[in-house]
């Protein structure tokens, strides 16, 4: 049976540490009805654009609307997939290239539901949540990121 969780705060300030991800995995070892986890990690890419390299992305958001969208997306995922639990974290502020800016963690009794729910969440978040990314270059110029 899926357990519906109260919405937690999705946004974290700065990058998401590998330790936070490891701790999150460890915290699920007591939930022995889980048979499969699926994890998506978004990492800031050091894209080269016109000879300049992206050193970081400065994330901002329309926070009230974003929190509401995250809530709707979570509810849709719980309705659509047989999940034991689900966690979503997204960075705000500056995240350096190579660091993690999005952490999605879905757990289920079986792999198919966990994997499909994780993919669903990634696509929904990229399409529907008002988050904006300013790509910062080493020479202190910038450009605005657009999701493909």
């Amino acid at each position: 049976m899926s357990e519906k969780k109260k919405p937690k705060k999705v946004f974290v300030s700065g990058s998401i540490s590998p330790e936070k991800i490891a701790t999150s995995i460890a915290n699920h070892q007591v939930k022995t009805n889980i048979g499969a986890h699926s994890i998506f990690l978004g990492q800031v890419r050091a894209d080269e654009i016109d000879g300049k390299t992206v050193t970081a992305i400065d994330y901002s958001a329309y926070e009230e609307m974003a929190e509401q969208k995250f809530y709707e997306i979570r509810e849709a995922a719980f309705d659509q997939f047989d999940l034991t639990c689900m966690h979503i974290y997204h960075s705000l502020g500056e995240v350096k290239s190579g660091e993690i800016c999005l952490f999605i963690f879905t757990s289920s009794a079986h792999r198919k539901e966990a994997i499909e729910a994780c993919n669903f969440l990634v696509e929904e978040i990229k399409a529907k949540v008002p988050i904006f990314g300013k790509e910062l270059f080493e020479d202190e110029t910038h450009q605005w990121k657009v999701n493909r």
């Binding site: 992305i57 609307m65 997204h90 990229k126 008002p130 988050i131 904006f132 990314g133 605005w144 999701n147």
Partner: peptide, 10 residues
């Protein structure tokens, strides 16, 4: 009213 440029989450 919010004017929103393209989204770039993730």
């Amino acid at each position: 009213i919010a004017f929103l440029p393209p989204f770039a989450g993730g």
